[in-house]
Design a protein around this nucleic acid. Structure first.
Lengths: 129, 129
DNA sequence: CCCGTCTGTCTGATTTTCCAGCATCGCTGC
DNA sequence: GCAGCGATGCTGGAAAATCAGACAGACGGG
């Protein structure tokens, strides 16, 4: 009915944010969409659509992308500022933190400190594009 | 032409594992599929299909579910489960880990998971399937 | 037996995604 | 300038996935 050009389909801000993060990371790593497609099996046009926020990202696809991009999955899904997480994060905590090697443990600690540092100077970060 | 009942579509072991984890967690929390549907907006039949591994889980859907279930997203996507439940790591929480926001907590947990399953194996990523 | 809840599953309709191109943009070299 | 080339956006259908809205079986109490 409505001959919407389909290009105007970018409606979900969450999806757009996810796509933006994926694109930024891919750019940072200097990969082409084609390369990502080859490595993950996700169609190239889908990679394009995803990054433009006009296609959803399946969980397992995101997992593959996160691996390819060498980032934790939550890197792409993390809320930037939603104060709705109470203590429940602690509920699933222990499992994630046991069984780490000493080296990995140190990396986790470093990462935590990095996050705190980043948050401290977050006011400067706007001009991403 | 082939009137596959669509129910026989449980072919992807990864999807099945994801669904199984989602179901186990929901059961553990004593929620009904209907309740999950109400809280997340995911259709009830979709919850059913997801748990049985016959429907994909969108990234943002998984995020909602993870929140509802009080687990980091990586809890459901992690490679193989770590049955370890030793508490020694939690005995004294390192200074680096206190004072984090909830969002950062999730990132730290996910990062820890990431390190563990990165160590576990990289054989997954290679060829397209 | 009669309800009520929960879950699996079907059908037809709707929505999304894929494929194959094509157009455009930025480069590079001629 | 212009031809070539890789990268990306974008479109028109066809194909697939998903949804709403049922219905049915299992289970547990009154």
């Amino acid at each position: 009915m409505t001959p919407e050009p389909a290009a105007l389909r970018g409606r979900d801000p969450e999806l757009e944010l996810l796509g933006e993060r994926l694109r930024n990371t891919r750019d940072y790593l200097g990969m082409s969409q084609q390369h990502v497609s080859d490595m993950t099996g996700i169609p190239r046009s889908a990679v394009s659509d995803i990054e433009r926020g006009s296609r959803r990202v399946d969980s397992l696809e995101l997992k593959k992308l996160a691996r390819l991009y060498m980032r934790p999955v939550s890197y792409f899904l993390a809320k930037e500022e939603e104060a709705d997480l109470g203590e429940h994060a602690l509920a699933g905590l222990p499992r994630a933190l046991v069984g780490l090697t000493d080296g990995d443990w140190e990396e986790v600690l470093s990462f935590a400190e990095f996050l705190k540092f980043r948050r401290a100077g977050e006011q400067e970060q706007e001009r991403g594009e």
